[in-house]
Computed example of a mutant assay.
Amino acid sequence: MKRLLMGLTLAVSVMASGIAQAQETKTLGIVALIANDALNIEVIGGATEEAKKAGWEVKVIDTQASADQANAAMKSFATQGVDAIFVLAFASSSISSGLEAAKDAKIPVATWGGEIVDGIVVTTSGLTVGEDSVKYLLDTVKAPADILAITFHPGKLCLDRGVAFEQGVAGKEGLDITYNEVTVPGQVQNGNAIASAFLTGHPEGGNPVAIWSCWDEPMQGAVAALRQSARTDVTTVSINGSRQALQLVKDGDLTATVWQPAFEEGKAVFQAILESQAATGTWTPKVIEIPGVVVTKENVDSFLAEHPNAQ
């Protein structure tokens, strides 16, 4: 009987230890703009790698670019009692009810491409890569020129990049800018339709023509439209530096993409979450800015050699 009691005591102790360890496991809830988008995948990968190193679990909810779904996801994570929420590419103003739910649950929120408001401990900026893209475009295409700008205002990163584009072309004489908002889901197909219509109205032989896109996927559709119309006179510039875009640059089908180090941004954001939790009330919210790289036909091989994970 004594041995039986000792065995039962040991079993209970082991079970209690296992329960305690399970309770200690923290969870990061990620709210993705578009979970299968190349850059979303990269930033989720960076945050996940760092979280797992720290012993955290990671849960991802795909919102398909819906602010309503983003707020619902944040409320769900708040109800679950996750330890931090990471929201990708939504403007802070569009996730106010989700932020309120997180605040009530005392859960810190980080954003990738959002504004610092109450409840957000860290974010990233999309302005820098946007500025790089428009600078390259204007250095390459001289006025008078006709430029198609493919925008996406629901995505905060695209919104910031669009602001950078507008500021870059402001006051420049001889530029005829056509703005067109892409739809999501279906951004590749819609990018193709937008570019096809623009090319029809801007035939070869007139002013120099260019297409700028706030991220790579609509540009993939635009490149297909260029192939379909056998146009080789159009300068094309997009942002993200996805594997597909880098291959298009390498093949000579895309003039330039501005690579954004999303994987590193994901890692940096998670580290900032940990630092904010350790700060115990003394944390000052911060904006992370990691410089990008303009990748062209001239430097794509050296870029890929230096960044093998980008392939």
Score class of each variant (00 low, 15 high):
Lys2Ala: 14
Leu5Trp: 15
Leu5Asp: 13
Ala11Ile: 09
Gly18Ile: 09
Glu24Asp: 15
Lys26Val: 11
Val31Asn: 06
Ala32Ile: 03
Leu33Trp: 07
Ala35Glu: 09
Ile44His: 02
Thr48Asp: 06
Lys53Phe: 13
Ala54Ile: 11
Gly55Lys: 14
Gly55Trp: 12
Trp56Ile: 07
Val58Glu: 08
Val60Gly: 06
Asp62Met: 14
Gln64Met: 10
Gln64Gly: 08
Ala65Asp: 01
Ala67Gly: 11
Ala67Leu: 09
Gln69Tyr: 11
Asn71Ile: 04
Phe77Asn: 00
Asp83Val: 10
Asp83Leu: 09
Ala89Gly: 00
Phe90Arg: 00
Ala91Gly: 04
Ile95Arg: 00
Ser96Tyr: 05
Gly98Glu: 02
Lys103Gly: 07
Lys103Leu: 08
Asp104Trp: 06
Ala105Gln: 02
Lys106Gln: 15
Ala110Tyr: 02
Thr111Leu: 05
Val117Met: 07
Val117Gly: 03
Gly119Thr: 01
Thr123Ile: 03
Ser125Gly: 06
Thr128His: 13
Val129Ala: 03
Gly130Tyr: 04
Lys135Asp: 11
Lys135Glu: 13
Val141Asp: 06
Val141Gly: 05
Lys142Val: 13
Lys142Ser: 14
Ala143Gly: 12
Asp146Tyr: 09
Pro154Thr: 04
Lys156His: 08
Lys156Pro: 00
Cys158Glu: 08
Gly162Arg: 04
Val163Gly: 08
Val163His: 09
Phe165Asp: 00
Gly168Ser: 11
Val169Asn: 03
Lys172Ser: 08
Gly174Lys: 12
Gly174Ile: 08
Gly174His: 11
Leu175Ser: 08
Glu181Gln: 12
Glu181Gly: 06
Val182Asp: 00
Thr183Trp: 06
Thr183Leu: 10
Gln187His: 10
Asn190Gly: 09
Asn192Cys: 10
Ser196Asn: 12
Ala197Ser: 14
Ala197Met: 09
Leu199Val: 14
Leu199His: 07
Thr200Ile: 13
Gly201Gln: 12
His202Leu: 13
Pro203Asp: 11
Glu204Cys: 04
Glu204Phe: 03
Glu204Leu: 02
Gly206Ser: 15
Ala210Pro: 00
Cys214Phe: 03
Pro218Tyr: 04
Met219Leu: 05
Met219Ile: 03
Val223Asp: 00
Arg227His: 06
Thr232Cys: 06
Val234Tyr: 00
Ser238Gly: 06
Ser238Phe: 05
Asn240Met: 04
Asn240Cys: 04
Asn240Arg: 00
Arg243His: 15
Leu248Met: 12
Asp251Ala: 14
Gln260Asp: 09
Gln260Ile: 02
Glu264Thr: 09
Glu264Ile: 07
Glu265His: 10
Glu265Asp: 11
Gln271Ile: 09
Gln271Cys: 11
Gln271Thr: 14
Ala272Leu: 04
Ala279Asp: 04
Thr280Lys: 13
Thr280Met: 08
Gly281Ser: 14
Gly281Asp: 12
Lys286Phe: 05
Ile290Asn: 00
Val293Phe: 05
Val295Phe: 04
Val295Arg: 01
Glu298Leu: 11
Ala305Trp: 13
His307Ser: 03
Pro308Trp: 14
Asn309Met: 14
Gln311Glu: 15
